[in-house]
């Protein structure tokens, strides 16, 4: 059972205090978008074995959404950061590259 530190209130919350929100950094496609764009937004998910970026909500705590970078295979956590970011912050990326030199980046 995971522990993730909520960047909003600083609590090291266990999984039962959190709600998962699936993949992070999706771009919303609304009216006017193509079928392909809408499909990518709604349905195409990376589901990688390895480095992954996810949305979590500290639902039994401060109620805030945040993002987490972790390895889906080893459950190693590279860091958590506020939801109001459109891409992983540089310090998290650096930590991932240090731990996973073979990682191809956030694509």
């Amino acid at each position: 059972m995971l522990i993730l530190e909520c960047p909003c209130c600083g609590v090291k919350a266990e999984e039962t205090e959190l709600s998962p929100g699936h993949e992070a950094h999706l771009k919303r496609f609304g009216p006017g978008s193509s079928d392909e764009e809408f499909e990518s937004y709604m349905f195409a998910r990376k589901n990688p074995k390895g480095v992954h970026f996810e949305r979590w909500r500290h639902s039994y705590g401060c109620g805030k959404w945040f993002l987490a970078a972790r390895c889906t295979a080893t459950l190693e956590v590279f860091g958590t950061y506020p939801a109001q970011t459109s891409e992983p912050p540089p310090d998290i990326v650096a930590r991932i590259k240090a731990r996973r030199p073979e990682w191809e980046g956030c694509k």
Binding site: S19, G21, R28, R55, R57, S59, G63, K64, W65, A83, Q84
Partner: peptide, 11 residues
């Protein structure tokens, strides 16, 4: 309520 907060916080 959670749905509203999701959109407000994340989008």
């Amino acid at each position: 309520h959670a749905h509203m907060e999701d959109w407000l916080q994340c989008e």
